[in-house]
Amino acid sequence: MTASSVPVPQTAGDGVMVRADAVSRKLGGLQVLDGVSIEVRTGEVVCFIGPSGAGKTTFLRTVNHLEGLDSGTLTVNGRVIGYRQERGRQVEESQKEIAKQRQEIGFVFQHFNLYPHMTAAENVWHGPARVKGVPRDEAKQRAMELLTRVGLADKADAHPINLSGGQQQRVAIARALAMRPVLMLFDEPTSALDPEMVGEVLAVMRELAEENMTMLVVTHEMGFAREVADRVVIMDAGRIVEVGPPDQVFNAPQSERTRDFLSKVL
């Protein structure tokens, strides 16, 4: 996995935001992840594509430890996620520590998973106020700013049930951003949306990318990947089969499996 040819902004440390090293995971007797290694640099947007069952979503979920690892290591911003060394062995971190690590990693779900018993605004400020202890007024003000940014200031007092799918997903993005993450993970953020709502969500994501947010995006939106991604990762059967800038991957794929997959979806 060579680094991208696209210039990315340099920040603290070695400029690497996510480093996966031989990440493996078995679920229900199936090797869902089979030695996945990749480095994602700060500010980079990496799209993960591939057939269903390839392990894209599972990989994304290991990055914030919603899914554990059987072997390999995963670091975000230089910190090992979910595990610590104890007498030479990897043991799972305490719940509290894992929760802390997750606070700086935003996650956007396919099915939004907004909290239905809270308004849009409360969905956004709840985390900062309750989990991080930001003063409530400050958290509420920032929630309004974020809702304005995703174009939903007028829906602040609406409950998720009264929002469209596209609006719910934009609130979900605002909710993740409210925690001031250093990394955003998107798990098929537009797959559950009606076609006419895909654009509004992608527009918000594109804007985020332009602001140099580091983003890992599992998606079937080839247009988005081609246009916004710095690199595209093709996965199949729990492995990365090809990585490269979108131009190269889409126009001159190196691997037979990439060609096979692209011929079916493009």
Binding site: L66, A99, K100, R102, Q103, F107, N113, L114, G127
Partner: peptide
């Protein structure tokens, strides 16, 4: 998904 969203948002169980 509600538990997952809460955990992903940095909450403890």
């Amino acid at each position: 998904g509600q538990t997952e969203a809460a955990l992903a948002g940095g909450m403890t169980n």
